Computed example of a mutant assay.
Amino acid sequence: MKDVVSRCPIEEVMRVLSGRWPTLLLYYLKDGTKRFSDLKRDNPTVSARMLSLELRKLEDAGIVRRTAHGGYPLRVEYDLTASGLTLVPLIDGLGGWWDQTAADRSGVRIRDAA
C-alpha cells in the first residue's frame, strides 16, 4: 500500500476501503458467514486472485475473519469481526444516501418534485 501523506484518519480508512471490491465484500458479508465461492458468485466479475487479495487486506485490517475448516477439500469461510460489524451502518447509510439522491442524479430537483 502507499504511504500515508497526512494524519487524517479518513486517509487510513480509504486505504483499506477504497476501490471497487472492499465495500461490496462488506455489503455481502453483513448478512453472515460466506464461503469464498459464495463471495465469488456474489461478485462474478472479480477474479479469484483479486478476491483473495481484497479479503486478505480486510483480514489484515481486522475487519474480516477467515476461518479454515480442515478436511478435503479445505473449506474456508469469511465473516465480519466485531470491528467489521460496526461498518455495516455506514455501508447501509451510503446505500441509503445513493437511493435518496436518485432524483437529483436524474436531473429532477428535489424542491421541484415536492
Rank of each mutant, 00 (worst) to 15 (best):
P73L: 09
Y78M: 04
K40S: 15
V13Q: 01
T86W: 01
L39K: 08
A103I: 03
T45W: 00
A103R: 05
K34G: 07
C8Q: 03
L90Y: 10
K40I: 07
G96W: 07
V13E: 01
V76P: 14
G107Q: 03
L26I: 13
S52A: 08
L80M: 08
Y78L: 11
K2G: 09
L74V: 15
R105P: 04
K34P: 06
I10F: 06
V13I: 15
V88A: 00
R105T: 04
G19W: 00
D79Q: 13
G95D: 13
Y27A: 02
M14N: 02
S83P: 01
P44M: 07
K30P: 15
L87S: 04
L55I: 15
E59N: 13
V88F: 00
R35E: 15
Y72L: 09
G71S: 14
R7A: 14
E12M: 08
I110H: 14
D92I: 15
D3H: 06
S52C: 13
V16M: 00
R35Q: 13
Y27G: 06
P9I: 12
L94D: 01
L26P: 00
L51G: 11
G32K: 04
R41D: 08
R49K: 09
R35K: 14
K57Y: 07
P89S: 00
L55D: 15
D112E: 11
A48V: 14
G93V: 09
K34R: 10
K30D: 14
K57G: 04
Y78H: 12
N43T: 08
T86D: 09
R49I: 12
F36W: 09
I63P: 03
Y28T: 02
R41S: 13
G70M: 08
K2D: 08
D42F: 05
L58R: 06
D38M: 06
Y28V: 03
S47M: 04
L25M: 04
I91N: 02
L29Y: 00
A102N: 03
A61F: 09
P9D: 04
D92E: 15
Y28Q: 10
I63D: 02
S18W: 00
S6N: 01
L39T: 03
W97S: 09
M50L: 12
L51V: 03
P22D: 09
L39E: 10
K57F: 10
R15Y: 05
I91D: 01
M50P: 05
D99Y: 02
G96I: 05
